[in-house]
Structures are given as structure tokens and as C-alpha cells.
Simulated scan of single mutants.
Amino acid sequence: MPQVRQALVAGSFYPAEPYRLQAWLQQQLAVPSSSAAPALGLVVPHAGYVYSGAIAAAAFAQVAVPPVVVLLGPNHRGQGAPAALYDQGGWQTPLGPVAVDEALAAAVLAEVPGVAADPAAHAGEHSLEVMLPFLQWLRPDVRIVPLMLQAWSLADLLTMGQALASLLQRWPQPSLLLASSDMSHYVTATAARAQDLPVVERLLALDAAGLYRQVHQARVSMCGVYPVTLLLATLAGLGCRGGELVRYGHSGEVTGDEGSVVAYVSALFR
């Protein structure tokens, strides 16, 4: 019987009741954007929908979701393989199951160095789960390849990105790369912007090495630096030349407290 990962943060990060979740998605994504079109990549935040959902939705609304989405997210808990792939079965959300694209997952295991099959590592992690309702709403038959990263060197991530780009160029079905990350954590809104904007500049320039170094040298508490670096390295190999900022914001815009915020960005790569 195929393994199914049950929803972990339904009811906390996003509504657990299908009708409430559908109503929220309808409000955020009901009107198709005139610019909705195929894309190579997305970067979106993964906090609770009340805080970052609108920032993520603004990017999702501009994308025609293809049959397969490769999900790249951080491993907040630090458990399991350094690059843990959920390679079989599916993921459950209040909107129903999402199937893993097992053929592409097997190819990733065979061709991308450092990746290991480790579904158990995903059991307690939220960074990819919160992406799924957006994808299901926009394309109910979407299939996913969920890959979760711990700390990697820049050289390793660039090598992994080259291998993943080569694989996706040869793959018979179109795919979307989606990296999940929040930006600065628990600093003032002013400090968050000062720390984050140089990182966002590197992000939009498709500068994987520059983003990696900026985050580490400036000690920016960007939780998804490793998946985003991998995304940029892969996009460069796919011929992407740069990205566009969709929206930047922070939790203080919702809570009214700008003394300690978590910041978020969404960006789109054609």
C-alpha cells in the first residue's frame, strides 16, 4: 500500500476544514491574473497563511502550474538525510491527496548527487506542506517531487543544481521549481528590510553564489537559503536570466508589531 504523508499543520498554519480552506483560496486566487503563464521557478514563504499567505498567493496567481512541481524546502528540525527526498506515495491535505511523481523522483535519486530517499524526514516539517493547497487549487491533478535540505556547501549546491537542470531539460513533461523560504526572523521591521533587500537583489539577479555568501556573511536568518540557492543554480542551468519581485512584506503588517517581525518575499522566474 503506498505511503501517504498526513497533513501536519492543517488547523494551525492553514484551515483544516475543506470549506474554509477553499473559501480562503477562492478569495486569494479566484480571479485569474492576466499575466498567468508558464514559469520556470517560484520563491514563496511558508508561514501561517494569516501572515504570509497573501504574499505567496500573489506569486501563485501569476503562474500556470504545469503537471509536475519540484518542491525545495528547508529542514527546520535538522532530522534525516541532508537532502531528503519523499520518493513514493503521496501527501494528504484537506483538499485531498497529492501524488508524488515517482518516475521523476527516481531520476532525481539516480542523477542528483547527495540526494537520498528519506520520507520519514518529512514527517515533522511544514515548509513544503503549506505550498500544496495553492497548487491543488490551481491544478488539481498536480504531482510533486518533495526535496528537503539541511546545510550544504555552496560548491555542493551548485553541482546539485547543474545535475537537476540537466535532468529537467531532458524530462518529457514540463515542470516548475518551487523553493520555500521565509526571510529575516525576529528583528525589527527596519532591520529586516536592511538585511533582506541585498539578499533579494541577489535572488532576482539569479546569483546563487552571491545570495549564499550574502546570507552567511551578513548572518541573515533566512531559513531557506539552501533550497533557494539550489533553485537559482538549477534555473541558471535551465537558461533563466533573472527574476521579478512579486511582493515583500513582514508579519508586523498583520499584527501591528514592527518591533519583532518575520519577513517574507515572493518572486517569479520565467
Rank of each mutant, 00 (worst) to 15 (best):
G90I: 09
I55P: 06
A208R: 04
D87V: 11
G90M: 09
P140C: 10
Q214R: 08
A263P: 14
L232C: 08
G96N: 04
M148R: 01
L164D: 05
P66K: 08
G249L: 03
L71G: 07
P198C: 03
L176P: 05
L8H: 03
Q22A: 10
V215A: 00
Y49D: 04
A267T: 03
D182R: 03
L206A: 03
A218P: 00
G239R: 00
G239I: 01
T93N: 09
V31M: 09
L154H: 10
A81L: 12
E253Q: 15
V44S: 05
G48E: 08
L135N: 07
A30K: 02
L231I: 01
R170M: 09
S266G: 02
R241I: 06
V142R: 04
T234C: 07
A179I: 01
F134H: 13
G242C: 05
T190S: 14
A54M: 11
L72A: 10
R241E: 15
A107P: 09
G73S: 15
H216W: 12
Y14L: 08
R170D: 12
Q79W: 15
G114C: 02
V31L: 11
T255F: 00
A236E: 15
P45G: 04
P119S: 11
P119R: 08
V44H: 11
V262W: 01
L42N: 06
H216D: 13
V31T: 15
H185T: 05
S166Y: 06
P174G: 08
D141N: 07
Q6N: 11
Q27C: 03
H122N: 05
Y212E: 05
G73D: 08
A151E: 15
L197V: 10
G53A: 03
A83N: 14
P32W: 12
W171A: 11
S33Y: 03
S221T: 13
A192R: 06
Q88P: 01
H76P: 14
M160S: 11
A23R: 12
Q26K: 10
E253N: 12
V65D: 05
G78N: 13
L149A: 02
F134L: 03
Y264N: 06
L147Y: 07
P113A: 07
M222N: 05
F134S: 06
V130F: 09
L230I: 04
Q173H: 12
A56H: 08
A263E: 02
A123W: 15
L235A: 02
S127G: 11
A151Q: 14
A59M: 02
L135E: 01
H250F: 09
L21K: 10
P82V: 10
